[in-house]
Amino acid sequence: MTTPDFTHFSPLAPAYDDRTDSDDVPIRSARLRRWSETLSLLRGHPGFLLALAFILFVLLAAAMPTLLTRFDPYATVPLEKLRAPSLLHWFGTDELGRDLYTRVVYGAGLSVQAALLAVSIAFIGGSTLGLFSGFFGGRIDAVIMRLIDVMLALPSLLLALVIVTAIGFGTLPVAIAVGFGLLPGFARTMRAEVMRVKTLAYVEAARLGGAGWGRILVNHILPNASGAVVVLATLDFGVAILVASGLSFLGFGAAPPAAEWGTLIANGRKFLITAPWLPLLPGMFVALAVFALNHISRTLEEVSK
């Protein structure tokens, strides 16, 4: 290899003849680096950790409620009815003497199930549609976007009501309804991202390097476009919880004595004057869960920049 001569032409270039770094610099994967960097960034956000802890609590309540409370959510204890919050009953008791905190914990199950299912449907369906739309463009894009327009005209709650009218309540149908309500958001976001990345210089460079579209899709477009969709998924998890609880508030949730959050609030409504903790505390719990998801979503968005 000829020694480059810089002296007369570009005096600002550093000399490169002497190799001080050894020939065997180990080559490391980028994936590990990215993950460890993201994790360390997230650790520096105390709000994020708090929100994450709360959501994990909610998920635990959904999966294994017995770990979190020793009361029976269904057993009626008439002597204990309508007690205000105390050290024994953290959220107080309802008109049948049941511990409200326990009812809230057990109520997590159905809401979380429905919400997770709904977001999964919306995420998978919407991202696929958005991918096709953004990637292929043209007629396919036009058709898919018209489909999305139609879906936008039917909001989650209304669609869920329609389904409940037709076939009654069920976690699966309701989840599908809510999922379809959320789907347009995912489709549009994915479409916008795919269209953005597709026109970036490094995609063109990969094409000129001989890469086929399949390779480019998997290695360049999807990884760079999916950040926004993941952020939306955490956000919409909260939205799905809100819609599900709205549905059960209206009386279209699981049959009593099931302790869904919306049902708890609806039942407690009669006691708004006499025992305000009955409707208000479960609602606050829902608000906190959704707020935590909102915060997680925003932190993820900041970190991905």
Binding site: R34, Y202, R215, H220
Partner: peptide
């Protein structure tokens, strides 16, 4: 012109892998 998620190594050898 470089994918921000790729290391220099990965960017350079991509044409070879294609």
């Amino acid at each position: 012109s470089l994918d921000p998620r790729y290391t220099v190594f990965e960017s350079i050898v991509e044409p070879l892998q294609s």
